[in-house]
Simulated assay, not measured.
Amino acid sequence: MNTVGEPRRLGVPGPEARLRFETEPRKRGAGPGRRLLVLDGEPAFELSSWCGTCQFLFRRLEGANQTLSLEATQERLAGRLSDLDDDILDAFGSLLPEGDYLPSLLRVEPRLVTPGQEGDYFSGEQVAAWGLDAFWGLPEHPRTPYYRTFETVVDDAAHLYEFVVPMVPPSWNEPERVAEYVEQLGRGVVPTAVAVSTLDLCQPALDLHSTDYHGHWGLTHFLLDGHHKLAAAASAGAPVQLLSLLALGESLAEPADHRRLATLRSQPRLPRGTRQAG
């Protein structure tokens, strides 16, 4: 069961936010600066370009070196939330810049993916749409393992891809804590993780290098709390719950696209090339 709430105002003034979105200044003779997710003043992830025709992207940078768990919320996140919890939303909102966020409670079954290996979006579906990077002759690289959780058909011309991206690599997790969560999952406990999210709509400008030309809706959840939970769920093949705060003003999407998420996220999981029944 997924719950998508109504947009709400959360966050603190930009300079006070531990995690915020920024765009690097334009350099003389160059295009727009990188679109970034910044943690404690240091670039943590490079995001998709504002142009909308470049490849969808999340790329880990040196500033992604810590998690953002909040001690006061740990007990309540140890199990399944029954609804959108105002106290937890406000607590994690205090880490983020003031803005409009769409809160959602999602059921996810994470699958850990290593770039360049089986199931990697960047060397699979993205290359099919954009081809290899024209200069490097290689796929884009996120510089981090990540979790694939869901995908479905948007329409005949577009597909939704969902990712959960850890702030630190799964190899940094404490094995003992992961094992504890595996044991709990085996007893039917469904814990809750928390993420700040973006929805980026990207599509190649021309069908020149595509074997599968289509628009990509990239729903990316940057994990704030729950790194051990996601690792355990991926190991055990079990579901967890994800509390997502979608940053509406920082996504490459329109309000009408945001409103479609509840419907899209309630559809069956459908890999690219599969048509929805009916």
Rank of each mutant, 00 (worst) to 15 (best):
A195V: 06
D257A: 11
P191Y: 05
A247S: 12
Y213D: 05
R111P: 01
T114M: 07
S210V: 09
G273F: 08
G33S: 04
L132N: 00
P139Q: 07
A233M: 02
L223W: 00
E140F: 13
F56E: 10
R9K: 15
E71Q: 15
L270V: 08
Q241Y: 08
D155M: 11
Q276H: 10
E98I: 01
R272K: 13
D120C: 12
Q126E: 13
S48Y: 10
S94G: 15
V153M: 13
L37T: 07
T211R: 12
S251D: 03
R269G: 04
G99S: 08
V196D: 10
D90L: 15
R275N: 07
V108P: 01
G249F: 03
D120R: 00
Y161L: 11
G218P: 00
E71T: 15
D87T: 12
K229C: 00
Q184G: 08
R275Y: 04
E24Y: 09
T198D: 08
D225I: 07
L132S: 00
G237W: 06
P32A: 10
L224D: 06
D212S: 14
A195G: 08
Q184I: 01
T152Q: 03
E75G: 09
A78S: 15
R259D: 13
A128E: 15
L68K: 00
P13C: 01
L96Q: 07
Y101C: 02
V190P: 06
E140L: 13
D225H: 13
G124P: 07
A195D: 03
L199F: 01
Y121S: 02
P139W: 03
H214W: 14
L270P: 02
P204A: 10
V127S: 01
L77F: 11
F45C: 03
W130P: 02
D83M: 04
R76H: 09
S49R: 14
G99Q: 08
G237M: 06
S171E: 15
Q55K: 13
E109N: 11
G131R: 07
K27E: 14
M167W: 05
V127I: 10
L206H: 14
V165G: 00
L106D: 05
L242S: 06
Q74L: 14
D207S: 11
P103I: 07
V168N: 02
A157S: 14
L81V: 10
G278Q: 05
R111I: 07
S210K: 10
G131A: 04
V127Q: 01
Y161D: 00
D257P: 04
V153E: 15
C202I: 06
S123H: 06
